[in-house]
Write a protein that binds this DNA or RNA. Structure first.
Length: 270
DNA sequence: CACTCTCCCTGAAAGC
DNA sequence: TGCTTTCAGGGAGAGT
């Protein structure tokens, strides 16, 4: 499931379409999580892709005509770049043809993702973008910022980490990995953490996410990079999905927090 | 406002 | 073996 590292890997791969012009657009699905803005989307035809970038877990494609395509991959969403595309594959919802004869496809079995289309200068007016907290890999993510956000919070640190309005980009899987790396229990309340512990968490956020980006993201379930390469960071997961396994002689436990699976090692994470 | 719960969806895995 | 049920999760919106 795409979290920050997978989205980062995705937008990097999409840069091979930079300066290419859209020659055709096919929409196969009326609605993903939200209705696909099919009328507006036609505006990208004949325009060139200027750049592919990431805002939190959103893929941002800026076009030369000053319009921007926003793609959220949800849980099972995946972008593919294909040279030959004669027939639609299962769960393909959108296909964009470029003038180098390659196709960018949005494929999403669970339809938890969505696409949006807006004038480029209005992107920060979108409520879901405007509300985002500091990006998990932004240098501006400081101990002071996080401490201030959570010093009065009764919410568990695990939930704070996946709250996109506080730190943007971390999802359920990496939250478990980050807290294991920081040796801090997911069950700790935000307000119980001191600045030293928050510093450890920030270090672990950067360490785990950067490593994951370097390994091309994770490929659990069907996440694959647009160029077809598989990420392999899931091989580096220490606790996620590893209930019952031993770490330094201690068992990894699974608990459900706010309806989400959470993996940790109580003896190591305090 | 701040928090938690529910829901959207399909395929894989578990259960029977 | 094969059918049925459960589970997975991002994030908006409803509910408290």
């Amino acid at each position: 499931m795409p979290e920050l590292p997978e989205v980062e890997t995705t937008v990097n791969s999409l840069n091979i379409l930079k300066n290419k012009k859209v020659t055709n657009l096919q929409i196969y699905t009326k609605k993903l999580r939200y209705t696909v803005p099919h009328i507006k989307l036609k505006k990208i035809i004949k325009s060139e892709l200027i750049q592919s970038r990431r805002i939190s877990k959103y893929v941002i494609l800026d076009f030369k005509n000053n319009y921007t395509l926003i793609i959220h991959l949800g849980m099972s969403g995946r972008l593919k770049i294909l040279k030959n595309y004669s027939s639609k594959h299962k769960h393909d919802h959108l296909s964009i043809k470029f003038n180098n004869n390659s196709y960018l496809l949005i494929n999403d079995p669970r339809k938890f993702g969505f696409v949006d289309f807006i004038e480029s200068d209005k992107i920060y007016k979108l409520s879901y973008i405007k509300k985002l907290g500091i990006d998990a890999l932004d240098k501006k993510l400081s101990i002071e910022y996080l401490y201030k956000k959570i010093k009065k919070s009764d919410v568990l640190i695990k939930q704070i980490l996946i709250n996109q309005h506080i730190v943007a980009g971390i999802g359920n899987i990496y939250a478990s990995e980050i807290l294991f790396d920081a040796k801090i229990s997911p069950l700790k309340k935000g307000k119980s953490l001191n600045k030293y512990q928050i510093g450890k968490i920030i270090k672990s956020i950067r360490k785990i996410l950067k490593r994951a980006v370097e390994s091309g993201g994770s490929s659990i379930n069907d996440y694959v990079s647009p160029d077809g390469t598989l990420g392999n960071f899931q091989n580096n997961f220490k606790v996620y999905g590893k209930e019952g396994l031993l770490v330094r002689g201690f068992k990894i436990k699974k608990v459900i927090l706010y309806g989400r699976s959470t993996f940790f090692c109580p003896e190591i994470q305090k």
